[in-house]
Simulated scan of single mutants.
Amino acid sequence: MTTTTLTPKTNPASGPQARTSPAAWLRAVPLAPAVSAAVVLFFVIAAIAPQLLTHRDPFAIDLANALQPPGLAHPFGTDQSGRDLYTRVVYGARESLLIGLGATGLAIGIAVILGVASGLGGRLLDGVVSRGLEVLFAFPVLLLAMLFVTIYGPSVTTQIVAVGLGTAPGYARMIRGQVLAVRHSGYVEAAHALGHSRWTVLRQHVFPNAMRPLVAVVTLGIGQSIVWASGLAFLGLGVAPPSPEWGALLDAGRMFITRAWWLEVMPGLAIVAIALAATSLGHFIQKKLEGAQS
């Protein structure tokens, strides 16, 4: 009696190659983070190499074409001096992103110092830092930034410092809470019980776990800092014209808002786009980190 062995048919689509194919990879990537990454990449290119995105001069004046609406020749229209608004938005990404990155970096640096000192220090130091943060929380971020810029004058540097100082208390409170939570966790107490030195426990357990949320917070903070800096510029406390910084473009265009709506809408859309894209990426990274922890 002969037996017939049936070999199961394999589906090529279920093999390893199908799982790693570009089509499958694209289906696995969520749409919102992919679009957000593309938007962020566009503005990064605009900040680093704007000549790749436009061939025009952002400061070239052409009074004959002043206040032209958006069209084929000028996708974003022209301003009151005939300058191409798309080109100015592209070139303005450098200063706007510089302010966002610089202010967020300054705020995180101050927050790490205050948060770690408060979380690891004694009751006296924790009380002093906590009361100081509560006092700063009593003042709105924009009010603190306006006060600083008014004293030291408008410039990119003062905007970075002003927004950084204004947003630092929120980050400091978050870091303090993270440090306290990790400090009293079970694995830190177990490390102490095993005889590890205080510095070893801090370096290997407390700092890495307490600072992990900063990866997502930084991306969220960049968009917020750009919005705050643009608000300062819109109030006349930003960089001086003819700078193409987005807040400065909004400030210059408000005088013509009834005649040329694009002078406000186009720079405003750029601010909204980078803020939403950075926030979306921040939430995506935060979810990935929370999933990795669980």
Results as ranks from 00 to 15, higher is better:
Pro169Asp: 08
Gly186Val: 00
Leu220Gln: 14
Arg27Cys: 05
Arg203Tyr: 04
Pro267Phe: 11
Arg88Trp: 12
Val161Asp: 12
Asp84Ile: 07
Ala270Phe: 04
Glu95Asn: 09
Pro213His: 06
Gly71Met: 01
Ala138Trp: 06
Arg212Glu: 02
Asp84Lys: 01
His283Asp: 15
Val239His: 08
Gln286His: 12
Ser197Cys: 01
Ile222Met: 02
Gln178Glu: 13
Ile160Arg: 03
Arg94Ser: 13
Gln293Asn: 05
Ala248Val: 15
Pro75Phe: 01
Arg176Thr: 01
Ala47Leu: 07
Leu180Val: 14
Ala270Thr: 08
Arg56Ala: 15
Trp199Val: 07
Pro70Tyr: 01
Gly121Thr: 02
Gln286Pro: 04
Thr279Gly: 14
Phe234Ile: 08
Arg56Lys: 14
Glu264His: 06
Leu26Pro: 03
Gly102Gln: 00
Ile99Ala: 00
Ala103Ile: 10
Ala181Pro: 02
Ser294Val: 13
Ser185Thr: 00
Val116Ile: 12
Ala103Leu: 02
Gly92Ser: 04
Ala181Asn: 05
Glu95Asp: 11
Gln224Val: 10
Gly153Pro: 15
Ala34Phe: 13
Leu142Val: 13
Gly236Gln: 06
Ala117Gly: 00
Asp126Asn: 11
Ala145Val: 10
Ala60Tyr: 00
Ala24Gly: 07
Gly231Ile: 04
Gly247Thr: 02
Thr219Leu: 10
Glu189Lys: 12
Lys9Cys: 02
Ser96Thr: 07
Lys9Asp: 14
Gly122Tyr: 11
